[in-house]
Every structure is written in structure tokens, then in C-alpha cells.
Simulated scan of single mutants.
Amino acid sequence: MTSLNVYSVLVVLFLTCGIVMATKENDQIIKENNCETKMGLPCVLEAFTRIFSTGSISNKCCGELVVLGKVCHSALVRRTLENPVFNDLNPATVIAKSIQTWNNCLALIDSPSPSA
């Protein structure tokens, strides 16, 4: 019985350390890359709504998202998912929407514009 309690404590400590390390890693990436200063607030809100709720993202904001960069984009989404406010969201669904949004924006920005 004691070994079960010790095992339980070790599992909890391991999981807690993993979460703390993930948070520090995301924060470090965000800080080192100045991620929070690369997009305007209106576009941050559009991207957030697209990824964490239901909405769309404009071509202008897709451009800002691509300039933000994939590393910043991924770190910001992961850090947001770590916030207890978002515990009711399915992380796999959010990450899938995040990747889809990134890929759609990248394709939109990389595609040649039609000539007039």
C-alpha cells in the first residue's frame, strides 16, 4: 500500500514538473523571439477567435500571422492552452485548428495574387 502512495506522489511530481517545464519553455521562446510585439491587437483577436472559437481570419491578419512566424505562433497557442481558463477545450482540436489556420494563411500569402 505504501509503495502505491509513493508511486502516486512520483507520478504527480513528474506531471507537475512537465507542465512547469513546458510553460517555462513556451515563455522563453516567446520572450526570445519578441512574439508578443509582432502582431497588432485586432489581428491577434481574429487569430485567437479562429483558433479557440469559431471565426475567420482576414487576408491582412493572415499576413501578420505569417510574419509572426511558426515558432511564435505555436508557442503562443501552447501557452494559451496552459491557462486554466481554457481547461474545457480539447487541446487536440485547438492544435489542429492552429495548424490549419497557419497552413491556410501560409498558402494564401505564398500564392501569387491574380493580375488585374
Rank of each mutant, 00 (worst) to 15 (best):
I99C: 07
K97W: 01
L15H: 07
P114Q: 10
S115I: 13
L10I: 05
E25H: 14
K31P: 00
R50L: 01
F14L: 15
E46R: 03
S115P: 04
L76E: 08
M21I: 12
S3Y: 11
L10Q: 09
N87R: 11
K24S: 08
F86R: 03
T54G: 03
L89A: 04
T49W: 00
E64D: 12
S115E: 09
E36T: 12
L13M: 15
T80N: 08
M1C: 09
C61S: 10
G40F: 02
R50D: 11
I95V: 15
S111W: 01
R50F: 03
K38P: 08
N104C: 01
G55H: 07
I99Q: 15
P114K: 06
C105H: 07
I109C: 02
L45G: 05
F14Y: 11
S115T: 08
S56Q: 10
K31Y: 14
I19E: 06
A107G: 07
F14P: 01
V6R: 13
F14M: 13
L65A: 13
S53Q: 15
N90L: 05
F14S: 12
H73W: 15
F86G: 00
P42L: 04
V94M: 02
K70I: 08
K31A: 13
L41H: 08
T80Y: 00
L68F: 11
I29V: 15
G55L: 12
L68D: 01
G55A: 11
T16I: 02
C105R: 04
G63I: 01
F48Y: 15
P42I: 02
N90V: 04
R78H: 12
T23S: 12
D110V: 02
S74V: 14
P114A: 06
C105V: 06
C62A: 07
I109E: 14
I99G: 13
T23Q: 09
V67N: 14
M1H: 13
S3H: 09
N83G: 03
E46T: 05
C43S: 11
F52W: 05
N90E: 13
S113C: 03
T54L: 06
A75E: 01
C105D: 02
S8H: 10
T2I: 08
I19P: 00
A92M: 10
S58Y: 08
I19F: 08
P114Y: 00
E46M: 04
L76Y: 00
C62H: 08
C35D: 05
C105M: 04
P84V: 01
E82L: 15
I51R: 03
N34E: 14
E64W: 04
N34Q: 14
A107M: 11
S58E: 07
G63M: 05
S3R: 11
L15P: 00
L65Y: 03
F48R: 14
S53E: 14
V44R: 14
Q100M: 09
V9E: 14
T16S: 13
L4H: 06
Q28E: 11
K38L: 15
R78K: 14
M1N: 08
N26C: 12
P91V: 00
S111F: 01
I30F: 10
V85Y: 10
G55M: 05
D110W: 04
D88H: 10
H73F: 15
R50C: 12
T80F: 00
C43P: 10
Y7E: 05
A96V: 02
I30Q: 10
K97N: 15
I57D: 03
E82Y: 03
C105W: 06
Q100Y: 02
D88L: 10
K60S: 12
Q28I: 00
K24A: 14
V6S: 08
I57K: 06
